[in-house]
Simulated scan of single mutants.
Amino acid sequence: MRVLSKLMLAAAMLAGTVAGANAQDKTPVKLGAIEILTGPNSRYGIAIQRGFDLALADINKAGGVLGGRPLALAYEDSAGAKEQALNAARKLIGRDRVPLILGPTLSNEMFAAGPVANERKVPIVGTSTTANGITAIGPYVFRTAMPEADVIPVTLKTAQSKFGIKRVAVMYGNDDAFTKSAYDVMKATLEKLGIQVLTTETFGSKDTDFSAQLTKIKGLNPDAIVLSALVEAASGIALQARQLGIDPKVFIIGGNGLNSPKLGEIAGASADGTIVGSPWFIGKKDPANQAFVTAFREKYGDSPDQFAAQAYDTLFIVAKAIDAAGAPDSEKIKDALIKVKHTGVMGPFSFSESRDPADTSGVVVLTMKGGKFQLLE
């Protein structure tokens, strides 16, 4: 009996020591993040990085995760290349042993990196990947970005109702998964709304001269140009359209790629009148959003965009999943993510069974005026 009692006492002391060690564990929980930090599309990735970093500071100031462990992010620059995004995912999983990856920035990159994370059973969360089929990659692939399939129909229907649009020209980048997917949604929506498509013109993501397509469009005299492009190409198209004499009354109606303040910065007055849909608006009056906007401006000397806002909320969503999982364990985090509920700067959020945003009712339609987006009224 005495031997048994001593063994029980020793076990109790060991358990207490382990529990104490766990309580004192201040090792950072390091996550991976794959974003475009250099190159033409870094405008998106840098905004996302800033959103993450602002959230990271707030989370750690509030105590971190798992009872006091700081959260950390290991960034990998994809430079907008899917091969680089793929290698970044392999590095973060194989060398850095991260339990979760944030990103990549573009859908093209997710279609490359997502299968690797899914195969290795590491959850990967896209904050800006809106193409069709992203979460169909596998059960470890999530996204907090609202799909274009939910945003574009609202945008086009609003433009039709407000401006009586009947005839349009369509332009899209045909060598990018995101812009091609958005075009597919545009095509189906235009057909459903009974809007006539006069011509469909394509271009490459690295093209800078759009004069041939725009000259043809000018001769057809459409009510609007429906455009699926990333912001660099969209800015060039807006500039060249006005230079060629396409009337400013011929609206440019865009997908998510145009939803960046950089459009106004690059194209100036030529971008005025551009119409886009968004799940977020900088002018939302709720306290959480206004506090985020103020903090972002104070830290970076610039205003946040939709991509920064989505990134900010996403890190809080992931932090909640880590706490619910009870450990930086990929499988437990994956199971916890699907159950997370969070109200942030984007509004209430939860995942659907397909690991997409469950609530897609918060789309607002914006128009650019004086180089800045405002609500279309």
Results as ranks from 00 to 15, higher is better:
L244R: 08
K6H: 13
V185R: 08
I152L: 14
N41C: 09
R297F: 08
R242M: 04
K82R: 15
Y140T: 12
T367A: 11
S330H: 09
V98I: 02
K166H: 06
I195Y: 11
K187V: 09
A321T: 01
D53P: 01
A89G: 02
S128A: 15
T135L: 12
P287H: 13
V3R: 14
L4I: 11
R95C: 05
A89C: 04
N41W: 02
S354C: 06
G64A: 08
E191S: 15
I124M: 15
V250W: 05
Q290N: 07
I165G: 07
S211L: 07
T135F: 07
T215C: 12
G133R: 08
Y183S: 10
I253K: 05
V340G: 05
M368R: 04
A336F: 03
D247Q: 09
V98N: 08
K249N: 06
A47K: 09
L198E: 12
A10K: 05
L4V: 03
D209P: 00
F307E: 10
N60R: 05
K284E: 04
G94H: 12
A113C: 04
G103F: 00
L375W: 01
D323T: 10
T200L: 11
S42N: 06
N174D: 14
G245I: 04
L193R: 06
K166Y: 05
Q306A: 13
S260R: 03
P248W: 09
P279D: 15
A238R: 01
V98Y: 01
M171D: 09
D53L: 12
K372Y: 06
E35V: 12
A182C: 15
D96S: 13
N132F: 10
F210A: 11
V226N: 06
Q84M: 01
G80P: 00
K6W: 14
D176G: 13
T208W: 10
I165E: 11
V363T: 12
R2L: 15
L376P: 02
F349L: 03
A57H: 11
I253L: 06
G245M: 04
K249C: 04
A212K: 15
L315S: 06
F296K: 11
G344I: 03
P328G: 08
G133F: 12
D356S: 03
K262C: 08
V364W: 02
F178Q: 05
E148R: 07
V250E: 11
P261C: 14
V125W: 06
G301T: 03
Q84R: 07
D25I: 01
A308T: 00
V226M: 04
